[in-house]
Nucleic acid binder design. Structure first.
Lengths: 147, 147
DNA sequence: TCAATTCGTAATAAATGAAGTTACATGAAG
DNA sequence: CTTCATGTAACTTCATTTATTACGAATTGA
């Protein structure tokens, strides 16, 4: 199964943008991600629709963050991306007539719901500012090593 | 992304088998699941390799449970099925050189690891006997309603 | 022994959805 | 008006599960 890596992508993009003065073009972002500029436009476009970033055409154009890093959580980004399915494992049929299958679904749904709630709660606690701070620490440590 | 429903399938199959005296053929199981007999053979074959079920060829052949329902947990079945990836969402690159991406991955990996640990812990607490008991309750309630 | 039943398994196709690509239109800077 | 950049539709590629076909092997019972 192919994993959805859009959340990972937009986080990577937003953090690079946060480390920069001017805007970043789709091409620059795509180079960071080793992907295609159109893929970046498509994905970042969802953030633009939510008002988290802005884009501009033409020379000196590109993408800029238009939100407070301390107020944007991973959960919010997950929602902005359309809340894609988190689990790659699931029930065979969603609303089966078979009573046996209903028991199976109830057990699995319960466990998955708990895990999803935990994951989303964690996502709700992590902001872009937290990630930026983590990056600063890693960057400082890296400079230390290469001093 | 296509969801892996094999755990759901084998649970459904095992519970039907538990409700039965004799063996069940791949065709009967496939009819319960609305799928193809070969799919059942393939999936059940993994359980057979782990000693959880037995199969026999020829007339009066089919599949039987060869384990104690109270001792088989959902976690064990998940492992028997090869521990398929639980999440449909993940990192773009697993071991990036980019420090920014390392921060992103660290945050996501932490949250996913917690959620996975919770899910597997829950799976470890649920046995086939629990599901069979839940089915009995549902079945009794169903007979009550249709009395 | 023969016919029917059932599993075992390889090979292949269908289905799904993200990712990648192409093509072209739109808009801004100079 | 040329260049750079986004916007977006259409299409292809890729990965993975599920479904199907085909055929072989084993078992039962007449």
């Amino acid at each position: 199964m192919k994993r959805d890596s859009r959340l990972s992508s937009v986080l990577h993009a937003l953090l690079h943008m946060a480390e920069r003065e001017g805007p970043m073009t789709s091409g620059e972002l795509a180079a960071c991600m080793r992907t295609h500029p159109v893929v970046m436009r498509r994905t970042m476009g969802m953030l633009r629709a939510a008002g988290l970033v802005r884009s501009a055409s033409g020379p000196q154009g590109g993408w800029r963050i238009s939100a407070d890093l301390a107020k944007v959580t991973l959960r919010q980004l997950h929602e902005t991306l359309g809340e894609p399915a988190i689990f790659a494992v699931g029930n065979r049929h969603e609303t089966p007539a078979c009573l046996v299958e209903q028991s199976v679904n109830a057990a699995l749904d319960g466990a998955f719901a708990e895990a999803e709630a935990l994951l989303l709660a964690r996502f709700g606690q992590i902001t872009l500012a937290d990630l930026a701070a983590d990056f600063s620490r890693r960057h400082a440590a890296w400079r230390e090593r290469n001093a």
